[in-house]
Amino acid sequence: MRVAFVKMHGLGNDFVVIDRRVGNVPPVDTALARSLADRRTGIGCDQLVVIEGSQAADFRMRIFNPDGGEVEACGNASRAVALLHGEPARIETAGGIIHARPADHGIAVDMGHPRFEWNEIPLAYAMDTYSMPVGWDGLENPIAVNVGNPHVVFFVPDTDSIELDRLGPQIENDPLFPERVNVNVATIVNRHSIRLRVWERGAGLTRACGTGACATAAAAIKRGLVERQVTVALPGGTLAIALGEDSAITMTGPAAEAFRGSFEWGAFA
């Protein structure tokens, strides 16, 4: 059977979106996600996004990394599916229900509240998550935060000088993180601006990571390094992050549709 897809991106973080509510699309599994994500033999993407019906929200969004692993949340993918939806929506994810709506500069997504307790990240054992007493080859004392998925954030003088392609996989797969972790290296430009690079769990170096921008902003605010509204500049572009008085995070940024197509299910499943 042929299945329709939409190719989308948020700041260059690209997705193949399949809507299982349309037609009789079979369930998606790890093997299909890996096959479709392959940039040489598949369609190619950073994440496969599957839209399904939901009893708890307007629809459910499932997110698969190129390694086939399913993850809890993706801020850029949230903006992409919200753009497809075209109006305010409540979106069910494995990390909880989020809210998205059209905004002046793209799509605004209410990402919920950052969580900092060690068992909410989760970590393998209890420790201070605001200045973790750990390090990897010069990257030291990160702050850990869960914004629907787990992140560690390192504040460094120059994010571009960090060998993130080498250190990222080491940190991601360290036994300290039983569910692995996303790795962020950030430089504070001023009280309203952050530069950021992200090693994304299960995907590697990425041009943009919405939850990484949210986690980094929340961590910087928690340490008193920036104000409660900041811009986060990633290699693919800039996101606006705001932390409300109730500590809920709002992320605002662009999303775009690249093209539409279809594929033969049996060739990839």
Rank of each mutant, 00 (worst) to 15 (best):
V189D: 08
N182V: 10
G210T: 04
G224W: 14
R228I: 05
L167H: 08
V183P: 00
G168R: 02
P175W: 10
R195P: 00
Q229K: 14
L176K: 10
C214N: 04
I221D: 05
I162G: 01
A218F: 09
V189Y: 05
C214A: 12
V189M: 10
V189N: 04
E179C: 12
E163M: 12
W199G: 01
D174W: 09
D174H: 15
L167D: 01
R201F: 11
P169S: 09
A218R: 05
F177H: 07
L225W: 07
F177E: 06
R166P: 05
G204V: 06
A217T: 03
L167V: 14
L164T: 05
S193G: 08
G212I: 02
N184T: 07
F177G: 08
I188H: 03
A203W: 01
T187W: 03
H192W: 07
T187Y: 03
L196S: 03
L196K: 01
L167S: 08
P178T: 12
H192T: 15
D174N: 15
G168I: 00
D165P: 03
A208C: 12
W199M: 07
A186I: 02
P175K: 10
L176V: 11
V189C: 10
S193Q: 15
E179N: 13
T211L: 06
W199D: 01
R180C: 06
N173V: 04
L176I: 12
I188Y: 02
R191T: 13
L196H: 01
D174T: 11
A218S: 15
L205Y: 09
F177V: 07
E227L: 09
R228P: 02
I162Y: 06
A218Q: 03
R223C: 14
V189S: 07
P169N: 09
R201W: 12
N190M: 12
L176P: 05
C214W: 00
P178A: 13
D174Q: 09
I162R: 01
T187C: 11
I194K: 00
T206H: 04
H192V: 11
N173I: 04
P178E: 11
E227T: 12
I171E: 04
E179Q: 12
R180P: 00
R223N: 14
N184L: 02
T206P: 13
N173K: 10
L225M: 13
G204A: 12
L205H: 03
G168P: 02
I188M: 06
I194Q: 01
V181C: 07
I194C: 06
L164A: 08
G202E: 14
G202K: 14
A217D: 01
E179P: 02
R180W: 11
E200V: 13
P178Y: 08
L176R: 13
R191V: 11
R228C: 03
G212C: 08
V226D: 05
C209Q: 04
A218C: 08
G210L: 02
R180D: 02
T187P: 05
E179R: 13
W199H: 11
E200P: 08
G224F: 14
N184I: 02
I171M: 08
D174K: 10
C214S: 15
I162Q: 04
D165L: 07
T187A: 10
E172R: 06
L196V: 08
D165I: 06
T216K: 00
L164R: 10
